[in-house]
């Protein structure tokens, strides 16, 4: 086994922010382990994304030509990845805890007979014990677990988005590009992908938003989200939700922030009617400033916020919207 392999994700001729974060993690490991760092991209027309990755300080960018990766079938990805791993025999395989990583990593590990750890926030090599140290949130974010692993067995790891800073361009170290061809048996593909539909489409993407207004169970119903949306418009913000509005169908499920939804880190996060469950907080705790608006002064969200207003959102939000409108004019 040698080297570290990152499974990158291309998006609109670039690589995703999570892919850049994986490069940061990968670089740290490769320097302390003295191993080469490969970055893999699968999908058609990913040349521009490959060039971007090559400038971020990896040793090699491998591209596998294939159909558009957004629609790429998870089984196909696993088949391709398993082949790449057999050819290159990396000691660590890094993926993001994304739609792709969540699905692909467990299957890949099973196929390779590798160790696997999902949803890590930290991965380092401890030189004194010669062990890899993995840290991951457990019990819905109530606790963190730290595991040690001898690195004599292949390891597949997914890293939670926003766990690291994205890698910056490194002009002194340009990765070389290699296109590889992979063959696998079509009979390995057991399921058929019929359709992919994106429902989030309009508005600002949560991951990219500088300001987010999020509503929780305390909003009490879909009507209440009218105020949330109004505030978001005034602020140029994206709207997010917690588990309760999602379960109760008050708002589209694709807006959920937290352990099983979006991981966000805006400059300003306004949590309205949100109690502060760890499952939700683990998706927004990297925000620069958190504001809590809740009528329960004992709500645990206040302990995790920088600023808070104790009060009914039906009274607080209209006043806040007025203030912000006046400020704009």
């Amino acid at each position: 086994m040698k080297g570290i392999l990152i499974c990158g994700e291309p998006k609109e001729k670039k690589i995703t922010s999570v892919s850049k974060e994986l490069i940061t993690t990968g670089k740290g490991l490769s320097s302390v382990l003295d191993q080469s760092l490969d970055f893999l991209l699968i999908g058609e027309k990913c040349e521009n994304a490959a060039i971007e990755a090559a400038n971020l300080g990896v040793d090699r960018v491998l591209t596998v030509q294939g159909p558009g990766s957004s629609d790429l079938h998870p089984e196909r990805l696993v088949a391709i990845l398993a082949q790449v791993c057999k050819q290159n025999d990396p000691m660590v395989i890094l993926l993001g805890q994304t739609d792709m990583g969540r699905d692909v990593a467990p299957r890949l590990a099973a196929k390779l007979g590798a160790n696997v750890c999902m949803d890590c926030v930290d991965l380092v090599f401890d030189e004194s014990s010669k062990e890899l140290i993995l840290t991951k949130p457990v019990y819905g974010g109530n606790a963190m677990a730290q595991w040690a692993l001898k690195n004599h067995r292949q390891l597949v790891v997914t890293m939670r988005p926003r766990s690291e800073k994205p890698a910056e361009p490194d002009p002194s170290h340009k990765g070389r590009m290699e296109s590889i061809s992979i063959e696998f048996e079509e009979t390995q593909i057991r399921t058929q992908l019929m359709e992919t539909t994106c429902t989030e489409g309009k508005g600002i993407k949560l991951e990219e938003a500088k300001v987010i207004v999020a509503g929780g169970g305390g909003i009490g119903g879909s009507e209440g989200f009218g105020l949330i949306q109004e505030l978001a418009v005034v602020l140029g913000a994206a709207v997010g939700i917690t588990r309760v509005p999602s379960d109760e169908n008050w708002m589209p499920k694709s807006l959920e922030i937290g352990q099983t939804g979006h991981m966000v880190s805006p400059n300003l996060y306004i949590a309205v009617g949100i109690s502060g469950a760890p499952q939700h907080l683990s998706g927004c705790s990297h925000s620069k400033i958190i504001v809590a608006i809740n009528k329960d002064p004992e709500a645990s969200i206040f302990g995790m916020a920088d600023f808070g207003i104790v009060g009914d959102y039906r009274e607080v939000l209209p006043a806040l919207i007025e203030k912000l409108k006046a400020l704009k004019e």
Binding site: C117, L134, P137, A145, Q146, P297, G303, M304, D306, F307
Partner: peptide, 20 residues
């Protein structure tokens, strides 16, 4: 395959400037 070193409670607490 992995050896648990420890569990710990993450520090998310912030000092809240609360208007009440």
């Amino acid at each position: 395959r992995k050896k648990l070193i420890k569990l710990f409670i993450p520090q998310r607490e912030r000092k809240c400037d609360k208007i009440e």
